[in-house]
Amino acid sequence: MMIYLTLGFLLFFALLAVFLRDTLLSVLSLATVSALLSIAFYQLNSPVAGAFELSVGAGLITVLAVLTISFLQKRKEKKQPGAALWLALSLALAALVFFLFQALWPQVLADIIPETSWGEVGEILWKVRLFDLLPQILVILAAVLGILALLRKEGESKER
């Protein structure tokens, strides 16, 4: 049951990411969350998703976020009053949803995790889910164009 331990740590770091006052530190906590999530994926016999999560989630997103923060140089967050209440409320909400979910949706518990390999995932990705390729490329294209548009230089557009 190592997986519970991993996910427990994950939740702890997620809490840190939410509650730390220094945004840089909380972004780093988020990176830890990503890393722990990829370990959890690995433990769940899904190495491909784990690798992606580690490289992209923990790596790329952190780099982007840290870059932004260091550009913007704004690290401290104002103190929030009444956070405990909100936390209790959201957790209570999630607990409620989860409870209902358990009560109303009897499910099969799978204790045996199937084995998967890179090849198999790749095959599915390139054969069965090939039709996700076009939208994925388009999303990346759109994101690139969007970022270019949002970070473009100069120009005062008039009131329109």
């Binding site: 994926f41 769940l44 016999n45 899904s46 491909v48 998703a49 992606f52 999560e53 992209v56 989630g57 790329l60 997103i61 982007l64 976020a65 932004t68 995790i113 199937p114 998967t116 390999s117 198999e120 995932v121 095959e123 599915i124 990705l125 069965v128 889910r129 996700d132 994925q136 999303v139 990346i140 759109a142 994101a143 969007g146 970022i147 949002l150 970070l151």
Partner: peptide, 24 residues
């Protein structure tokens, strides 16, 4: 698991794009 892994991979890629636009 292989099937959902491939979905997860795509979902992670999309997630990054969203984050990048958000940061912009």
């Amino acid at each position: 698991l292989s099937y959902t892994q491939s979905l997860a991979v795509i979902a992670i890629a999309i997630e990054v794009m969203v984050v990048a636009v958000f940061l912009a």
